[in-house]
Amino acid sequence: MFKKLDPLLHSELRLAVMSLLVELEEADFVYLRENTQATAGNLSVQLDKLSVAGYISVEKTFEGKKPRTICRITPVGLRAFESYVDALKSYLK
């Protein structure tokens, strides 16, 4: 029996962001953009979707005079990611 894949995570960019954040304690917008090779606009939209779902927390801060957006995975996001990987396994068996 195939498990349902979370539609929020079943998108290449959102899944890549969540995979990076699972591995990291935190990552800023620039790091995520460089490591996913996404455009700033697209990444911003996808981060917003993940944030609204409660999968990540987004903190806006300043480094000197430059604005900095720091993202962290939340416990809800971690559970969703684990469930997504579990669901994936059911397809690959």
């Binding site: 894949l5 290449e12 899944l15 890549a16 995979s19 990076l20 591995e23 490591n35 997504y84 690959l92």
Partner: peptide, 11 residues
């Protein structure tokens, strides 16, 4: 398979 590749590549 593609999903799994996205996850493993990012990590």
């Amino acid at each position: 398979e593609q999903s799994l590749k996205v996850i493993s590549d990012a990590i």
